[in-house]
């Protein structure tokens, strides 16, 4: 990967890079397929039931069957829907979810773009998904969708502020927005220790951004039937689901890189194990935490949801920025 980056761009290189990107797409789709399987399996075990075990050995083909079913379903679109926006919404939701993966360094030599503005790129692109959600809610011309879409948008923008602010502490300590620099700066100690408050804020806000338990209000089946994607069926619906799980992949990678030392081993003596193994281990830990939370937590109330972001997380994130700034100045000998 790195050797390709240093050559002058040519048609051959573009083709090679495109093939590598398609390979990553295949990995991500494989991850989504088995993340859903393990999610159902793990939640099943936690609730003392076997989980999916009928399709294929141990139920391993359950998600494959589900995807095939979605692909074969009729694609209905209500007559009163806004045709253009209705078609645009799934693309708006899914496109950025995959595009953010371009900047993720998975190990020293496995990674794609090495942008100087990596963090900013992730945050800027991931906001576009909110537009996809609100477009879907509006375009369906359905009361449930509209309310669900607005609720999702309100939740996502409210939690985006503390999410984005919690990263500022890390940038202060590293002095760079590049994700590789951020990992390299964690050689001595992972960011989760000096930036523990930021980590807590980030973890909670990430749950809300991903619309996952206990912040899964947008999909509150019991009150909104399904929220912004009530009118979507077949593969358009699958695209919203896919975007959600691809974001889980992206957010897991981002948390691993920002707080858990990316591909670095926990102690120097274990450095002989390849970096990608450490990355996958930390990443899997985060994904497991997601499933665990979903099996454990009840859904938060809508009125508590908004005030928690603004009254709880935002002040903590701001205080963390100031404390980190003072500490960095102090250790530089500024006062």
């Amino acid at each position: 990967m790195t050797s390709l980056l240093e050559q002058t761009p040519s048609l051959l290189n573009v083709v090679l890079l495109a093939l590598a990107a398609v390979a990553l797409l295949a990995v991500v789709l494989g991850f989504v397929t088995y993340a859903i399987y393990f999610e159902r399996k793990i939640i099943g075990w936690m609730q003392l039931r076997p989980g999916p075990n009928r399709v294929g050995p141990l139920g391993l083909l359950q998600t494959v069957a589900d995807v095939a079913k979605l692909l074969l379903k009729e694609d209905t679109r209500p007559k009163s829907a806004d045709k253009a926006l209705f078609a645009l919404a799934p693309v708006l939701a899914y496109g950025p979810a995959f595009a953010v993966l371009a900047v993720m360094p998975f190990s020293e030599n496995i990674g794609f773009a090495d942008l100087g503005i990596g963090v900013l790129y992730y945050i800027a692109l991931s906001s576009i998904t909110i537009l996809g959600v609100i477009t879907a809610g509006w375009a369906s011309n359905n009361k449930w969708s509209l309310i669900g879409g607005l609720r999702s948008a309100a939740q996502m923008i409210s939690y985006e502020v503390p999410l984005v602010m919690s990263v500022v502490g890390i940038i202060l300590m590293t002095g760079s927005l590049n994700l590789r620099d951020i990992v390299e700066a964690q050689r001595d100690v992972w960011n989760i220790i000096p930036q523990f408050f930021a980590f807590c804020v980030f973890l909670i806000a990430a749950q809300a951004e991903l619309n996952r338990s206990p912040f899964d209000l947008p999909e509150a089946e019991s009150e909104l039937v399904a929220g912004y994607h009530v009118e979507y069926s077949g593969f358009r619906f699958a695209m919203f689901m896919l975007a959600e799980y691809v974001y889980m992949f992206g957010m897991g990678s981002l948390i691993t890189i920002l707080f858990l030392g990316g591909w670095l081993p926990p102690i120097e003596a274990l450095g002989f194990i390849p970096g990608i193994v450490w990355f996958i281990l930390k990443f899997s830990l985060y994904v497991f935490l997601q499933f665990w939370l979903r099996a454990t937590m009840p859904r938060i109330r809508a009125d508590q949801l908004m005030s928690f972001a603004w009254k709880g997380l935002l002040p903590v994130a701001l205080i963390n920025i100031l404390l980190t700034a003072f500490f960095v100045s102090y250790s530089n000998g500024s006062f």
């Binding site: 980056l5 761009p9 990107a21 694609d75 799934p90 496109g95 595009a99």
Partner: peptide, 29 residues
């Protein structure tokens, strides 16, 4: 060259991200 390559990658990813839903919903589906 590195700078240009990085943004070529970003363009490829954006294109793939748009292509997958469009291809599956409008052409394969």
């Amino acid at each position: 060259a590195i700078y240009a390559n990085n943004y070529v990658i970003v363009a490829i990813f954006l294109l793939l991200g748009i292509l997958l839903p469009v291809a599956t919903v409008h052409f394969v589906g």
